[in-house]
Design a protein around this nucleic acid. Sequence first.
DNA 1: GTCTATAAGGGGATAGAC
DNA 2: GTCTATCCCCTTATAGAC
Lengths: 196, 196
Amino acid sequence: MARTTGSHSDITGPRIQEAALRLFAQHGYAAVSMRQIAREVGVQAGALYNYTPDKQSLLFGLMQDHMRALLATWAAQPQGRDPCAALEAFTRFHIRFHLERPDEVFIAYMELRNLTPENHVAISDLRGRYEDALEAILKRGVAAGLFDVADTKIATRAVIAMLNGVNTWYRADGRLSQTEVETTYWDMVRKAVAPA
Amino acid sequence: MARTTGSHSDITGPRIQEAALRLFAQHGYAAVSMRQIAREVGVQAGALYNYTPDKQSLLFGLMQDHMRALLATWAAQPQGRDPCAALEAFTRFHIRFHLERPDEVFIAYMELRNLTPENHVAISDLRGRYEDALEAILKRGVAAGLFDVADTKIATRAVIAMLNGVNTWYRADGRLSQTEVETTYWDMVRKAVAPA
DNA sequence: GTCTATAAGGGGATAGAC
DNA sequence: GTCTATCCCCTTATAGAC
């Protein structure tokens, strides 16, 4: 980890983000010091400020990058017209995307209260857009008589909360494959929004 | 908030717990200082140590009290033999109990990583017992042919994750009453575990 | 039981040398 | 671009007066 003096602008930046991501996820934003991040990267604390104006921007950047990647990746998925197929695609996409990025997901959900008010609004806005994508599917399904939910807003949040739960217990070396988990959750989502 | 010197052992203890609860929930354990808690209570920081050996014990006590109250209150609910009625009772109980204690719930889920390893084990054990209560209901329902889930362990976690989500958006002055929310979630839970 | 004072250390962020 | 050194403030926890 220790390094000699020199210029490494092209690699230090990403390394700082990776170290901050892992440390924030493991110990929490407030519990991690800039000195700790610097030690992980192998530079002195002062050098971090060549890449970020302050600690808050480091957190905000990580959360914003994550939410933007989430929205962009979902937007790039093939979108069919059938609400049922769309809901299955969303379910499987959500689980897959989130299981691939446990640290980012953890931070995005746990560190909201450590954002400044302006940054909090920005992240909440991105999250709202993702929820809107799911709600649009549910609304189309309800309109087509394929789904039956009392309230599409609540159903949206219920489905996302349920799917987010996967990250708290799934282990790659566990007894179920990722695809089996996807199928199990899709089965419950499908039934939960189906007509009674 | 400011107070003059004197002895108030009977009221200071609870006031410290209340202040710590609210501050930990709002800003996070790591971001809250003992001085902040003391200021809220109206004593000097040193006085806190008459009531807790250290900051960690304060957090652990709050989480342990919450989990024990959760288990005890559930155990005191009338328990019927019908799995379907039991699942509805669990759903409504869970939402009601959690909406009544938003700060405790927030801490119990967000501050796990700030517990010492021994304390983490103790809280995880209590949480596991609560999950077991739900899983037992699901197992009885599956055995009776009333429910159909691919995996009772996953279904247990999925249901709890879904129900926990209520705390992130429900506001008492919102458009839905607590009972309406309970009914909406019960409808989704019921269908999610029903035979296909 | 609470206070004041203090120990011993860590925090974010900056300045200026190289 | 990184280092060393530093500013100034805050941290948990304890000691001893009252």
